[in-house]
Amino acid sequence: MTERLDQQSASAARRRGGGRPLGTAIRYLIFLGPAALLYVPFVLKPLIETFGLSLFAWNGVSAERTFVGLANYARALGDPIFWISLRNNLYWVVTSIVLPMATGLVIAVLLSAVRRGQRIYAGIFFTPVVLNLIIVGLVWGIIYNPLIGPLNRLLRAVGLGSLAIGWLGDRYAATPAIMVAGAWTFFGFCAVIFLQGLRTLDREQIEAATIDGAGPFRRFRKIIVPALSDQVTLLIVMSIIGSFKVFDIVYVMTKGGPDHASEVIATYMYWQSFMNGSLGYGAALAVMLTAVVAGASLAMMALRERD
């Protein structure tokens, strides 16, 4: 009997333990401890080290690192491949704003007009978004393949055989070819974002415009597009960030080749750091890339704060 009572009061006490407010230090430990355990050694520390490393010359193997100040940054300015990479990143920005966003907008407007099957269509257009970029790169690598690729077959079939080239092996065609594949993975995302924007669009606004005599194109231009300005801004900033971070798809399709022609900063940084043994230079490239991406990300956050 007493034993049972003891048990009862013990369990009550245990429950009361959960009811006790914890001291500040213990709260820090419990709540932020696990996150810090991951974040500090695997993100924060390497981030700081990268900044430090960018001031040294190091081949990654020898024990000795030579302090070179800002020489790695100066080296980038005189490095033609750096400029090619940067130019390609900028191409990516422009293309990924124009191509997938325009396609996505049209698809979203079409989708918003259908009543049945909207979810199925959206699912199909969204599929390339969830596939990893290695799959995407291999699939499009085959499309562009000079021997078996259906693209060249198609060109020859319609009498444009002169345009049939080895797309990914051509120094001028490689980057645009990869960018089309990249657009394939992004337009469905744009469509869904636009569709969400269109759902919040006041139906009565469109009806009022219709009554006011606006035709479908005028309605699109004057009512729908302005109403989506938030989504447009969001997607543009995302495109900028994504275009500077782009790595996987380029690496799997061309590895930056031929002869660095399709290189972007991220692949070039990888090549310098892991293939060429110029870790200090690679770090400097990483810092510059970070500056651009972080700037764009902060801009995006500022935009969201504004709303």
Partner: peptide, 30 residues
Amino acid sequence: RLPGARYALAAILLGLIVPLQAIIVSLFHD
């Protein structure tokens, strides 16, 4: 009710805006 929570938040925000490429080389060695 963590005093100084906004500094922790700022540190986390930093992780949100830097690309993976910024840490990859050092992370490899660490």
